[in-house]
Nucleic acid binder design. Structure first.
Length: 569
DNA sequence: GTAGGGTTAG
């Protein structure tokens, strides 16, 4: 009965049942502990374990210890794990496979990889199994050692779906998306059938590639295999659609799982809405989440605060920050601090943002100073920007963003000499500037455009298209924002440089190569400049198309001369 | 009757 409740995810019911029992045998204790462990309630598993040791004469058996070791592994409690290990040796329970595997996992996960390896080597060759090796493989991946992990994977004879997934996830977590993709392909060809874990991981690959086509393919295969009903796959789908620029797709999935939403589902949808500039909707959804009695976690609050940032709701942001710390008792992290700095700074309350940084109970990090710096850039506050940049460079001397932001700000204010000075010192220190580029995917092929690099095969046609658009939008009232040009050159040259910004080239290319009325989805690695933002609004009206641009921080939906961000970004 | 390796959010 206890395990039945646990399997339904009703830990409370299981506990009530357990408390009712007059006589508790080892199986009832084990069921409760294992249930907690399987539902991620590892702290509860450990407390139950110590109750068992105190309240009863029962001795833990191999089932108890396997679960407890797993809890230690998840909580990375190496010391406690070692004590359990000692007990296992004394009680001579170390011969059971499940216990051995749990032991190796515990060491691999909680920072004792060398011990894990040693135990594995001591096992006779006969009973080495895929579970222990997968745990070891995962241990290497956690340390970022991909090579030994891959070696283990290659040497495994009976690779099952978990081993394949562990290796794929390992690539994803270490930013090796292409390797993940490649391995997934060969899994399809010759490996076991992917399950919900595999598909969720591959959806996160599609998210970081921001490839809607690819994500849709994974969605289709999840539908075919029935894994689409898993909450984790649904949650990963929400993020994938959002990051690929389709807020509608994200909404559809979220609505579809009405009866099956967890904290991650709500959080993913809130973040999706925030990223797409639907700040009010994000907040409304958050309130709905609270009224449904779903507990927000620290990431939910990152989403809520960034929703407030994107629409400039300063007061509301402040009150949510207080709600988080005072009511939900969530300790703010660096991300929350960065959100608050952004919230205040974006709204022009630069001094207040600066004071906020000064009042932090921890050393401010690169992100904190970087947020303040970019806000100073938006509001053209040179003095504070200089201060922020200097402090940032103390922590990270090679931060190209800090140099660029400061140099650009000087340029924008016409202080060419100081701008040149910053660029010189950047050059002297060997710091390389991050180049801006944009890309667009058309029929499974990604086309990348740098600033005016002119390498594309359709260069002539693209430039010609841009020339035509430029003339027409100027007739519509578009005024080029030559302040966005960060070089001291004549007005005419400035205009030419603006015309060839990477996002504009990507749009011109998209217009040439897609049928009329198709939505264009452009991605950019840096934040969109003022001139491009203004130009794209006109272009969307001129060509009667929706243009979706994802820049470094958010999405802009341009339609009929307007942008979803309402020009606040 | 109970157990062991792998997800998803900024």
């Amino acid at each position: 009965m206890i395990s039945l409740h646990m399997q339904c995810g009703c830990a409370d019911l299981a506990l009530a049942q357990f408390k009712q029992m007059k006589e508790r045998d080892i199986v009832s204790w084990n069921s409760l502990i294992a249930g907690y462990n399987q539902h991620g309630l590892d702290m509860e598993a450990l407390t139950t374990f110590s109750c068992m040791l105190q309240d009863s004469v029962l001795q833990p058996d191999k089932f108890t210890l396997a679960s407890i070791l797993s809890a230690c592994a998840n909580l990375e409690k190496l010391e406690l794990g070692k004590q359990i290990h000692a007990h296992i040796v004394r009680a001579e329970l170390g011969t059971y496979d499940a216990v051995k595997n749990a032991l190796i996992t515990m060491y691999a996960k909680s920072g004792g990889l060398a011990i894990a390896q040693k135990i594995l080597e001591q096992c006779a060759t006969s009973d080495l199994n895929v579970i222990a090796f997968t745990a070891l493989l995962h241990g290497y991946i956690k340390l970022g050692d991909i090579m030994p992990a891959r070696q283990i994977f290659d040497s495994l004879r009976d690779r099952d779906v978990v081993a394949w997934t562990a290796m794929i996830v390992g690539y994803v977590q270490n930013g090796l998306n292409n390797d993940a993709l490649e391995l997934f392909m060969s899994m399809i060809k010759q490996g076991p059938k992917p399950n919900s874990y595999t598909l969720a991981a591959m959806l996160s690959v599609s998210s970081s590639l921001a490839s809607l086509d690819y994500g849709k393919q994974i969605h289709a295969s999840a539908m075919r295999s029935g894994e689409v009903h898993s909450v984790s796959v649904s949650n990963a789908l929400i993020s994938m659609y959002s990051k690929a620029g389709s807020i509608g797709g994200a909404r559809k999935v979220f609505n579809l799982i009405y009866f099956n939403r967890d904290t991650v589902s709500w959080t993913s949808m809130i973040i999706a809405l925030a990223q797409h500039g639907h700040g009010e909707d994000a907040i409304e959804l958050f309130e709905k989440m609270l009224s449904h009695g779903i507990k927000p976690d620290h990431i939910t609050y990152v989403g809520v605060l960034s929703a407030c940032i994107h629409v400039g709701l300063v007061e509301q942001g402040r009150s949510y920050y207080n709600l988080m710390t005072n009511v939900h008792k969530i300790e703010p992290t660096h991300s929350h601090y960065a959100c608050m700095i952004d919230l205040l700074g974006r709204a022009g309350l630069l001094q207040e943002a600066f004071n906020f940084i000064q009042s932090l109970p921890v050393e401010p990090d690169v992100i904190a100073w970087g947020s303040l710096l970019s806000c100073c850039k938006v509001h053209k506050n040179v003095d504070l920007a200089k201060d922020a940049a200097e402090r940032l460079l103390l922590i990270d001397p090679d931060n190209s963003g800090a140099y660029s932001a400061l140099a650009n700000l000087y340029s924008a204010c016409g202080r060419w000499e100081e701008a040149a000075q910053v660029r010189r010192s950047m050059k002297n220190k060997g710091v390389k500037k991050e180049q801006g580029f944009s890309w667009i995917q058309i029929q499974n092929k990604v086309h990348v455009f740098g600033v005016d690099d002119g390498v594309h095969t359709q260069k002539e046609a693209i430039y010609k298209m841009m020339e035509k658009i430029w003339k027409e939008i100027k007739n519509m009232g578009f005024v080029p924002d030559t302040d966005s040009v960060l070089h001291d050159v004549g007005e005419e040259v400035k205009e030419k440089m603006l015309k060839h910004h990477s996002e504009k080239l990507a749009i011109a290319f998209g217009l040439i190569n897609t049928p009329e009325n198709t939505t264009l989805r452009i991605m950019k690695n840096l934040r969109v400049c003022n001139d491009c933002h203004s130009a794209i609004k006109f272009i969307s009206k001129l060509v009667g198309r929706e243009i979706i641009l994802r820049d470094a921080t958010r999405f802009h939906h341009f339609k009929n001369g307007k942008c979803s961000c309402r020009d606040y970004w």
